[in-house]
Amino acid sequence: MDNDTIVTKVNAALAEEFELEQAALVPDAKIRDDLGLDSLDIVDMVIVLEKAFDFKLQNKESLAAIRTLGDIYTFIGELRDAGTIR
């Protein structure tokens, strides 16, 4: 899975579940401040991403550093590089 595919899948999954405008889905978008997701949304976002990429996140602490949409792309890329997702 290349980086462009990751971006497309993340954006599609989040746009559908959280009714976000595609135009708002830029790498610098802050998840809370710009996308307006609250703490409950962020818990749901993990579930949405697990389903979209068919993986189960074992270490929830690894999410602590995620602030922006770009951080999510990077995080999913790292899971791909580690062989967690294909």
């Binding site: 009714e19 307006g36 609250d38 409950l40 749901d44």
Partner: peptide, 9 residues
Amino acid sequence: GRFHVGAFH
């Protein structure tokens, strides 16, 4: 507006 999910949770 957009709804937050807390009430439904």
